[in-house]
Design a binder for these strands. Sequence first.
DNA 1: AGCATTCATCGTTAAATAACGATATAATCT
DNA 2: AGATTATATCGTTATTTAACGATGAATGCT
Lengths: 95, 95
Amino acid sequence: MQDEDLAVMMRALGHPVRLSILKIVAKSQQSCCCADVTQCLPLAQSTVSQHIKVLLEAGLIERRSEGTKNCYVVVAPKMQKLESAFGSLTRGLIS
Amino acid sequence: MQDEDLAVMMRALGHPVRLSILKIVAKSQQSCCCADVTQCLPLAQSTVSQHIKVLLEAGLIERRSEGTKNCYVVVAPKMQKLESAFGSLTRGLIS
DNA sequence: AGCATTCATCGTTAAATAACGATATAATCT
DNA sequence: AGATTATATCGTTATTTAACGATGAATGCT
């Protein structure tokens, strides 16, 4: 994986609100929409939507529209790739 | 590990220049100072020093003064803690 | 068709970040 | 003591980010 792509994902994870959003999305077994996330956080809907966009653009979550809602899921393969890239980074750094 | 701390480290890793700096510091077996890093990058010394500060504050590298130079090393235990925190994060997200 | 719901996007503002050159500090050397 | 070296910090500028309220577009309901 390219350093730039890795950096984009790291940056996406580099904000506590986005970590929270990821956890909320992951935890809710059935479809999790923007309103669901917003309800869990002390932030405006538009702010949450913006954070979601960052996660989307990093490829860490995916949108799928469901009626009038937009639901989000964590992209497991991407997370795994990230973890492995991160692993080889750290291995390279500390060996 | 607290979400905020995790986010600080992720953010520190969320810039390609800082990834480069970490790699440069890790690769150079003997003491690696700011000038050494700067020589490897198309950036001003002050800019490199600023990036180094971000890595220092995240606890990912450590300074140790050596004569008139300041040398840097990757803090292996911190990297390992980060990797394990990251691992449990992703495990929580994709399970 | 008209209304309600959901949510992305727009426009704005304040704060943080990235980059630079210039300067100041601290250690070494002559 | 004075000169040199290495580098952190300062001051600045431009860009990006975070947060908000308001608006608009798409979908579903009556």
